[in-house]
């Protein structure tokens, strides 16, 4: 049976991880490659590296990091942050990334999804969607959550699937950082109406939140950052728990 995936996400700035790293006693705690490798040895099913650098030099540093990850880590990984055009995608895939995550750029220029799918195949595209439940329904947001779009979450999710996205990474801004669980109702609505895998993001605080994202939210994968980085939830323990809860998990 296909396993549900657990994906730690690492924010990278100028080649170094940004958030805390208490989960292992790494000498090079700020090195995303060492951290990624430690996660992979602890049972992470995939890794996600987000470049939060703005500068051109930062981009170069990030690309070098992607090559090092590809050389040293033997599980799939997604990279994202600041992808504007197909050349960015090409640069990151050539550096060895398995998938790229695109966010605002897809909303501003939806045909970018078609273009990437045509050149590299759907399997490389993770379309990240940040959304919030406003009084008039779920809306997409861009620019790191600062800019509301009239575009509805479910309409946009359907459109990116039709345009050739391989997966959707859905972050509920209402749930992100609150640690009260994932947006399971919206997740289920996405998962039940789309035919591509849905990755849940935003809200993990306890182990049962992951279970609920799979059982109630019907998600195919769950992504989290701080609960892993701060060692609040060790991945081996999480996976053991999920398996006890009868969820298909790779151990």
């Amino acid at each position: 049976m296909l396993a549900k995936r657990i994906i730690p996400c690492l924010d990278v700035k100028d080649g170094m991880t940004v958030k805390g790293t208490n989960f292992v006693n790494l000498r090079t705690a700020g090195d995303p490659v060492a951290l990624g490798k430690a996660y992979s040895e602890n049972g992470a099913d995939e890794l996600c590296f987000l470049d939060i650098t703005a500068s051109f030099e930062g981009r170069k540093t990030f690309t070098d990091m992607v090559s090092r990850v590809a050389q040293e880590i033997n599980i799939p990984f997604t990279v994202g942050g600041g992808i504007q055009e197909i050349h960015d995608v090409e640069r990151l895939l050539n550096a060895g990334a398995d998938k790229v995550s695109i966010n605002s750029a897809a909303i501003y220029n939806p045909s970018l999804i078609d273009e990437i799918a045509r050149h590299f195949g759907s399997q490389v595209i993770v379309c990240a969607i940040d959304a919030r439940q406003d009084p008039d329904g779920w809306h997409c947001y861009t620019k790191g959550g600062r800019q509301r779009q009239e575009l509805g979450l479910f309409d946009w999710a359907h459109e990116v699937q039709e345009r050739g996205a391989g997966e959707i990474l859905f972050t509920s801004m209402d749930h992100d950082g609150v640690k009260q669980g994932f947006a399971n109702e919206a997740l289920a609505q996405l998962a039940d109406n789309l035919s591509i895998p849905i990755i849940a993001s935003g809200g993990a605080g306890q182990m049962h939140h992951f279970r609920d994202a799979f059982t109630i939210g019907h998600a195919d994968a769950a992504l989290a950052a701080s609960v892993f980085h701060f060692g609040e939830i060790p991945i081996p323990q999480l996976k053991k728990y999920l398996r006890q809860e009868n969820i298909s998990i790779r151990i």
Partner: peptide, 29 residues
């Protein structure tokens, strides 16, 4: 869902290609 994307387990391993492995090991697809 199609494509199958992610980790699944393999069984009935009958080749030296799988030396030292047991049924149920997970591989990426």
């Amino acid at each position: 869902k199609v494509p199958q994307m992610g980790w699944n387990s393999i069984y009935q391993l009958v080749s030296p290609l799988f030396n030292g492995m047991k049924d149920g090991e997970f591989i990426y697809n």
